[in-house]
Amino acid sequence: MLKIKDLKVEIEGKEIIKGLSLEINKGEVHAIMGPNGAGKSTLSAVIAGRDEYVVTGGSIEFEGENLMDMVPEDRAHAGVFLSFQYPVEIPGVSVTNFIKTALNESRKARGLEAMPAKDMLKLMREKQALLEMDKQFMSRSLNEGFSGGEKKRNEIFQMAILDPKLSILDETDSGLDIDALRIVANGVNKLKNKDNAVMIITHYQRLLDHIIPDFVHVLYDGKIVKSGDKNLALELEEKGYDWIKKEIEA
């Protein structure tokens, strides 16, 4: 599904990603772990198409197409979803209005008619229940005055509605209390199937207790320096990132 080959990325002349390769197939869950400044969030932003980041080398293919040729909204239409670490506020635009617009824009891009109001309502109710969100939530302005947990739940709610092929969760666990973490993880697990894939970017093991990864990769200084199964995450949690640093420098 996603093939990243020898990717190199700069921002403002500074190289952040220094030759990264990664392949994600459908049905898989990958966790990207690593210390601050390793390039984790840069990787997610580049896949989503944020344009301050300059790709200086390598390639990103998604479902056989060159992702780099596509504008962010086309990537979204193709099935790439990013759950933001810091979702922005859009005052005056309700959660309902926003997600309705997003869904219908995606449908339009696929040559489909706008979803009838009745079906839309049904779909929203269903996903609302999945993320344990109350009704008032839907009419609030997007992310305005939301708690950290509400923001992240709203991200996963949007993911549930848009039903992407590849979901990138950028530090979705940060700022979540235990209950919110459980709700969010439960949501992601329910949405997971054999045809989609999830990429989890995180510092910590704790989200991986709830969403079990098939592969764990350690990102350090712009490269994937170590890959393994879920046990690698546990090992990291136990030994800390210094362990990786030492191993690399050795």
Binding site: R50, P72, A102
Partner: peptide, 12 residues
């Protein structure tokens, strides 16, 4: 940030 957020959700 607002524009990119919308773009990422498929909104041009």
């Amino acid at each position: 940030d607002q524009l990119f957020y919308c773009n990422q959700r498929g909104i041009g």
